[in-house]
């Protein structure tokens, strides 16, 4: 049973979804997300900006993502500002109709974190580290007119084994 058929059954099989298995298209765009970033104490909610590109030869898709977040805390005694950049490549199943394609996929992710800790009059240290992990997401995308495309996704990604971040985002881009 193909993924497309699965979705058709889910939609009631009444012809709402018209499978166009075998067709291919590509999208790329910019995405704004809310990140639930795991810290030593909790998940901190921070905004994130990202770009994505998908190549979708149904029922498969390949997606690449690059995402940036930043958070900072400063007071009279210290300042800590941290940036996180994550690159991921996902192998996905692409299901549904052209007006709305569902992507379900997973793949490796590389996260580079860099934190600048400042204290005293002049003391400061920057620490940068890289963590490999996994990335998984469920996404929807579709055309917005002739050339534009929209996307929406929820995802999870790990930094190493123990740190897991979650994200929810929406984006706009181009299709061809």
């Amino acid at each position: 049973m193909t993924p497309t058929l699965l979705l058709s059954l889910f939609c009631g099989g009444g012809g709402v979804a018209h499978a166009i298995e075998g067709a291919e298209h590509s999208t790329a765009g910019v995405q704004l997300s809310a990140f639930a970033l795991q810290t030593p104490a909790r998940h901190a909610i921070v905004p994130a900006l990202g770009v994505w590109a998908s190549y979708t030869p149904r029922p498969w898709a390949l997606t690449g993502e690059l995402t940036l977040t930043r958070r900072a805390k400063t007071n009279d005694f210290y300042g800590v500002s941290a940036q996180l950049v994550r690159a991921s490549a996902l192998a996905e199943l692409a299901m549904g109709t052209r007006p709305m394609t569902v992507h379900v996929g997973a793949g490796p992710a590389l996260t580079v974190s860099s934190a600048l800790t400042e204290w005293g009059e002049t003391d400061a240290e920057r620490i940068t580290r890289a963590d490999l992990g996994v990335r998984a997401r469920v996404a929807l995308d579709g055309p917005l007119g002739e050339r534009l495309a929209w996307s929406w996704q929820v995802g999870v990604a790990s930094r190493g084994v123990y740190n897991w971040d979650y994200d929810l985002g929406a984006g706009i881009g181009v299709q061809w």
Binding site: V80, A115, T117, E125, I127, R129
Partner: peptide
């Protein structure tokens, strides 16, 4: 599970 690094024998945290 704190994030930090040790530089010149001093532990420097990566967050508050």
């Amino acid at each position: 599970d704190l994030d930090y690094d040790v530089i010149d024998d001093v532990a420097i945290p990566m967050d508050e």
